[in-house]
Design a protein around this nucleic acid. Structure first.
Length: 103
DNA sequence: GCCATGACGGAGC
DNA sequence: TGCTCCGCCATGG
């Protein structure tokens, strides 16, 4: 467990209600810019118990990305986001223009 | 220690 | 926007 990983969690927790952030954005803010993949790794190994809004973290396309292992929870993340007022288009994507978190 | 894999991102087409 | 290729690098076999 690195300090950077800790930063990732801290940053994800800072994402405001009704907003989303991309992996690259999180990585940049955590000081590990190029390691967007590590952000995904970190979140993947994250227990659901903690109060970390992992569902507000998406890929650059504005779509929810998830591991095959989490496949059964695909609608969970989407549902959580919809509850926050985030709208999905017919392709299941989020309008980053309106919902992307600007620090 | 090498090799394959991966919640990704960006450049090029 | 989509697809492909490449770069980055932690993690596991």
């Amino acid at each position: 467990m690195n300090k950077n990983y800790h930063n990732i969690y801290e940053i994800v927790k800072k994402i405001p209600y009704g907003k989303v952030a991309t992996y690259g954005q999180i990585a940049a803010l955590a000081g590990i810019g190029r390691n967007a993949r590590m952000v995904g790794y970190a979140l993947f190994s994250l227990p659901d118990d903690l109060e970390i809004p992992w569902h507000r973290v998406i890929n650059r396309k504005g779509e929810i990305s998830y591991s095959p292992a989490r496949n059964q929870h695909d609608n969970l993340q989407r549902k959580l986001l919809e509850l926050e007022g985030i709208v999905f288009d017919m392709n299941g994507r989020i309008d980053l223009k309106n919902f992307l978190w600007n620090e």
